[in-house]
């Protein structure tokens, strides 16, 4: 029997969607209580459960050869991977938002609170707009409410959190897709097994 491929899955909102998708393709797994390593029922995979933002580091260092995560997470870490398989689930948008009564955006000087500092800076710099960025690690919606920054850049799925805080989207920076990523050297060595896995997991 061939050695199972190693894959890192993210804790949090994406995990349930990934698990459901794997189940629909006949691949099932369970993490025993408090354990962060599991094997699937077919012996194809050794699965690590890791923090979403740490997932690229595990793949880049070859601890896990594969991983499933959003493009936003990969961008912020600065690593680069092979995108082996895109998924339609888990997609979201990275948006700029502000208070509903905000004044018209003055592009000469923007102060933006966000967790996505690299993407936000690069996005506005490419457009020649200088920005001051305040890094926050969560609950970014609070920034305009409490007066820390008039604008935020954050992931928006349904928009209900924004609405609850009297905020509205004023610009979509990019659509975020979820991909199965691979460490390049790992892919090169195991390309046949990885391509087979991608064929199994490919959405209909």
């Amino acid at each position: 029997m061939e050695k199972p491929l190693t894959i890192a899955l993210p804790k949090g909102r994406l995990f349930d969607q990934v698990k459901e998708h794997f189940h629909s393709k006949g691949i099932d797994f369970e993490f025993e209580k408090r354990k962060l390593v599991a094997y699937d029922n077919k012996g194809l995979l050794k699965i690590f459960l890791v923090k979403n933002s740490d997932l690229p580091a595990y793949v880049a260092h070859g601890i896990a050869g594969l991983g499933i995560c959003g493009e936003d997470v990969v961008y912020e870490t600065g690593y680069s991977f092979y995108n082996v398989l895109p998924f339609t689930f888990g997609g979201t948008r990275l948006c700029m938002a502000a208070h509903k009564d905000h004044k018209e955006m003055k592009e000469s000087h923007l102060t933006i609170a966000t967790s996505f500092t690299d993407y936000t800076r690069d996005y506005f710099h490419k457009q020649g707009i200088p920005v001051k960025i305040i890094k926050l690690n969560g609950s970014v919606e609070l920034a305009p409410v409490l007066g820390l920054a008039p604008y935020i850049v954050d992931l928006v799925e349904t928009g209900s959190t924004l609405k609850a805080n009297n905020l509205e989207v004023i610009r979509t920076l990019t659509d975020i897709k979820v991909n199965m990523i691979a460490n390049r050297a790992y892919y090169k060595f195991h390309y046949e097994a990885i391509n087979k896995l991608a064929d199994i997991l490919r959405e209909d």
Binding site: A60, H61, G62, N183, R184, A185, Y186, K188, F189
Partner: peptide
């Protein structure tokens, strides 16, 4: 060309 070896995270 590149050389790849199992358990190495780069060529």
């Amino acid at each position: 060309f590149s050389a790849y070896i199992e358990n190495l995270s780069k060529a």
